[in-house]
Simulated assay, not measured.
Amino acid sequence: MFYSEEELKEQEIQVSSKLYLVFIPIFIICGLLGYFQVNSLDCNKRRYENNRELYFKGIVIDKRKEGDYRRARKYVVLDSYHEEQVDNFIYKKISVGDSVVKGKGSDSIYFYFKTGKVIIQDYNKAYREKYYKLLNEE
């Protein structure tokens, strides 16, 4: 019942070739599906409209970072317990007690500081640009 070295090598080659025949098409199909989903007009339109309809407002009660390195994601936590990711510029300027508002149907997010200063940031820029680019290609 013991196999010789040659038979084992032959079986190993057969098994690995069968595995390649199964997994390579699966990887190709997954890659194609991912590519078409990223470049799908309907999918990008849905993402853009969902972000456009997002609504939140509140007073900043906490600031936090994911990690201790320079490019770590930075968040502000609002009194409504909504947590929103912000860029480095806003994270450095905002403090506890400042207000954040993102209106429904708007692409802008407003940061109201206790000093009276207001910063308006384009919240939906990446989704909007991708959607309009795909829209113009058709």
Rank of each mutant, 00 (worst) to 15 (best):
N50I: 09
N88Q: 12
Y69M: 12
S108R: 04
C43R: 13
K130W: 08
S106C: 05
R52D: 05
Y131A: 01
E10N: 15
Q11K: 14
F113W: 02
S4F: 12
Y69H: 15
E84W: 07
A126K: 08
K9Y: 14
L19H: 14
Q14W: 06
R73S: 15
I29Q: 09
Y132M: 15
N136I: 02
K125A: 06
I119F: 14
Y112H: 08
Y35K: 01
Y35L: 08
N50T: 12
Y131N: 03
T115D: 15
S40E: 04
N51T: 08
G103S: 06
G105S: 03
H82W: 06
L33A: 07
I13K: 13
E66C: 09
C43N: 14
I90L: 02
H82R: 10
D98T: 00
V100P: 01
K104P: 06
I13H: 11
G31N: 07
E53R: 09
Q121R: 07
Y55P: 09
I90F: 00
Y69D: 10
K9M: 13
I59E: 15
A126S: 11
K18S: 10
A126Q: 04
E83N: 07
K130Y: 07
S106D: 05
N44Y: 02
D107S: 03
I61T: 14
S40N: 10
K63G: 08
V100M: 00
N51V: 04
E84R: 07
K9G: 11
E129S: 10
E10V: 06
V38P: 03
I94Q: 01
G105M: 01
I24G: 07
D62C: 10
S16V: 12
V118D: 08
E6I: 11
E138G: 04
N88E: 15
L135S: 05
Y48F: 12
K57M: 11
D42R: 05
F36C: 04
G58P: 00
V77Y: 03
L32P: 09
D98G: 01
D62G: 12
I90K: 01
K9D: 13
Y127R: 06
E12Q: 13
Y69F: 15
D98K: 02
D68A: 13
R70V: 00
E83K: 04
E83H: 04
I94K: 00
D42T: 03
Y112A: 05
F113Q: 01
C43T: 14
V22M: 11
I119R: 11
K93R: 02
F2L: 14
Y123S: 07
R46P: 08
N124P: 05
D62I: 06
I29R: 10
S108T: 04
Y81K: 13
R47L: 14
K74Y: 04
F27A: 15
Y75D: 09
K114Q: 14
I61D: 09
I26R: 10
Y132T: 12
V86Y: 00
D79N: 07
L41P: 00
G34F: 10
T115W: 04
V86G: 05
F56C: 13
I119C: 10
M1Y: 02
Y123L: 03
G34K: 09
I90D: 01
